Computed example of a mutant assay.
Amino acid sequence: MSTCSTASRDLEEPLAGTAATARTWLLLEQSGPWGAKALTSSHLDPALGRALEAAAKGTGVRIALIRRPGRHADCGTPAIRQVYAAHTVPGAVWLHSATTRDPRELLDLDFAALGRGEHQSFDAVLAARPHAGDPLALVCTNGKRDRCCALLGRPLAAELAASGVEGVWEVTHLGGHRFSPTLLVLPYGYAYGRAEAHAVKDVLHGVQEGRVVVEGCRGSSAWERPGQAAELAVRSHARVYAADALSVVRTDGAAPRWEVTVTHADGRRWRVVVAQGASAPPRPESCGTSILGAPTRMDVVEVRELIRTTALAS
Score class of each variant (00 low, 15 high):
98 A>R: 10
98 A>D: 06
99 T>H: 06
99 T>S: 04
100 T>P: 08
103 P>R: 04
103 P>E: 07
103 P>F: 08
104 R>F: 11
104 R>E: 12
106 L>A: 09
106 L>Q: 08
108 D>K: 09
109 L>H: 02
111 F>W: 05
112 A>P: 00
112 A>V: 01
112 A>D: 13
116 R>V: 00
118 E>N: 12
118 E>D: 15
119 H>R: 04
119 H>I: 06
121 S>R: 07
122 F>W: 02
122 F>C: 12
127 A>Q: 14
128 A>D: 03
128 A>N: 13
129 R>Q: 10
130 P>Y: 03
130 P>M: 01
131 H>C: 11
133 G>R: 11
138 L>Y: 06
139 V>H: 05
141 T>E: 11
145 R>M: 02
147 R>K: 15
147 R>A: 14
149 C>N: 04
151 L>Y: 04
153 G>D: 07
154 R>E: 14
155 P>L: 05
156 L>K: 06
156 L>M: 05
157 A>I: 04
157 A>C: 13
160 L>I: 11
160 L>E: 05
161 A>H: 12
162 A>N: 14
163 S>V: 01
165 V>E: 14
166 E>V: 07
167 G>W: 09
168 V>N: 07
168 V>R: 03
169 W>I: 11
170 E>C: 14
171 V>S: 09
172 T>G: 15
174 L>S: 09
175 G>F: 06
176 G>Q: 07
176 G>T: 12
177 H>K: 08
178 R>S: 07
180 S>G: 02
181 P>K: 00
182 T>I: 03
183 L>C: 11
186 L>H: 03
188 Y>M: 09
190 Y>R: 12
192 Y>K: 05
193 G>N: 00
